[in-house]
Design a protein around this nucleic acid. Structure first.
Lengths: 331, 331
DNA sequence: GTGAAAGCGCTAACAA
DNA sequence: TTGTTAGCGCTTTCAC
């Protein structure tokens, strides 16, 4: 700024003013400064401004995996909602591991974000403490934690799984299996599994057809392998609920390879409303958790909490996932 | 730090030292400081350190879309490679638009990253100038620009498309179509399209079966719609090359819905080696551009350029995409 | 509309 | 091993 000030013949303070909107600077002076900026190739140093203003414009965001269309949609909704107000997401991923989450949260907080968004409601004790004492808005998403740290934009994964089981049972299926990741890591997956068990018991059905398909994120190939295992262990299974549409699609392809008719011999349901579930043949019954809406709503919540928006939103927004019944479960 | 210094009875400078590794501080003093940090819930302020040290630990990264498994894999490889050296990616997406790229690059440079990675080699003139004069290493990835700004980790999208056409022609296909996004936005997609045309002409074949499937990112549903359009316009088509596996999968499902046998009546090839292409029935012929390797190699290049690694890498790494021939093109 | 002084929270450099 | 001084590049505050 000093270089520009010298060049234009003003003080650095005037340059600082000219570079911001809503400040009173002589129009010609401002224009001259704009020009000098271009000529000198000056790029504003926001690290210095951040320190002085004690505002970084960062919103820290942790997601389990960057390579997941559901979370990517959430990040997009969040990003787009924040961008208008000059806020920028500072993204990190945890690999579905709460110890990595702790390390990540600590690292992110050092950057002095103005708010933090974490996926899930399960944290290490130290991570919880860090979040609580950070002195910034905290939003937990994609879950409905029993003891939320701050605000919540999410839904019950267990209840959503229950919806799918209710549907399967209502269409006459009784020997229903669940394919998911190994317990303990992906807490949303674990909740869906718990929701499966609870719903099955509610219907008086056997809830022991549980297949662990590997370490989260469980994907299409593992879904196919798990389906093979399932059909060996329990060949009379007539329906399978998968922890995600990706796993469900893997199951569908395995059935196709094995000559098992879907939905006639086997009903398949997934979770997440991934694009593949809509377009595959037959299309997969699933639940839409509205990932992008989670992001947008989180952005709205944050803007309200940060006093950047007039709307006074309800700061805990429950998302209502939608059951999408498609041909994969309709015989 | 002053609070901690007071509490422990040392100067802030000693606290600063105690909080870093490789500094000489009395073991007991260091321990006392660690404890005071915990008790007071102090979190290091890296914005201040960044300003003082003129080092942020950020590496700016632009990708076209966050919701794309290929780019996500690249980001993961890059992230993991940088993490070990304390560098953190600062991610933004351009929506396949070079004007948005310009705005994003400018915004990212204000954060004073230590290097910048941009996807693609096509930029607005101003964006190019910004990158050139940023005074930090620049790496262009996923492409082989004619006039690179700095370093490159990529491959020729046109040549990769040519490999697929050569394969289709070698299996006897002649009436081959291309489905991609509307020209002008996704430059890698446009390169694949150009590679398709060049390869077809090389084989003396008609290269006019070009279907535009909408604004990038083109996805499964649009791939299916484009396939319907293709079959109306040119029902005698015997093979189709798609700009990505996602589009190709959409095409496959459309053929299934229309009762067109793949590969017997129609060969389908994609691009990117997405998981869906490996597992679907029949699996899709594609090209693997090794997205995660692009990320890892970019990280290695940067570490070398930043003097953080001893290896003196060749700083322009050409990735060699691999042709994966699968059942979707083998009749 | 403009400028001077001070300081955000850290650390490099030097001194002890 | 520890402390003092100065300053990173901005912006707040106050004065003119």
């Amino acid at each position: 700024m000093q270089d520009i000030a010298r060049k234009v013949g003003v003080s650095p303070m005037t340059v600082s003013r000219a570079l911001r909107d809503g400040t009173s600077v002589n129009t010609q002076t401002r224009e001259a400064i704009r020009q000098a900026v271009e000529e000198l190739g000056y790029v504003f140093d926001s690290t210095a401004a951040n320190l002085r203003q004690q505002r970084t414009g960062f919103v820290a965001v942790t997601i389990p995996s960057i390579n997941n269309a559901n979370f990517a949609d959430t990040v997009r909704g969040l990003s787009d909602g924040l961008k208008v107000h000059g806020l920028q997401p500072l993204l990190g991923y945890t690999d579905y591991d709460i110890d990595q989450e702790e390390a990540l949260v600590e690292q992110l907080l050092r950057r002095r974000p103005e708010a933090i968004v974490v996926t899930g409601g399960q944290h290490t004790p130290r991570c919880r403490r860090l979040l609580e004492s950070a002195g910034i808005p905290v939003v937990e998403i994609w879950d409905l934690p029993g003891q939320p740290v701050g605000h919540v934009v999410g839904f019950s994964n267990a209840a959503a799984a229950g919806m799918l089981i209710d549907h399967l049972v209502s269409t006459g299926r009784t020997r229903i299996a669940f394919i998911g990741g190994e317990a303990g890591r992906d807490s949303r997956g674990a909740d869906r599994r718990a929701g499966f068990i609870a719903a099955m018991q509610r219907h008086g059905l056997d809830a022991t057809r549980l297949i662990a398909a590997g370490v989260p994120p469980v994907s299409m190939l593992e879904g196919a392998a798990a389906t093979r295992a399932l059909l060996q262990q329990a060949p009379d299974t007539d329906a399978v609920l998968c922890v995600s549409d990706l796993v469900a699609f893997g199951a569908l392809t395995e059935c196709q390879r094995l000559g098992i008719a879907v939905p006639d011999q086997m009903a398949i349901a997934g979770f997440g409303n991934y694009e593949v579930a809509e377009i595959c043949v037959p299309p997969l019954t699933t639940v839409n958790p509205f990932p992008e809406q989670i992001g947008r709503q989180t952005a709205a919540t944050l803007l309200s909490l940060l006093g950047l928006s007039a709307d006074n939103l309800p700061q805990n927004s429950k998302i209502s996932p939608e059951l999408l019944v498609r041909a994969s479960t309709l015989s």
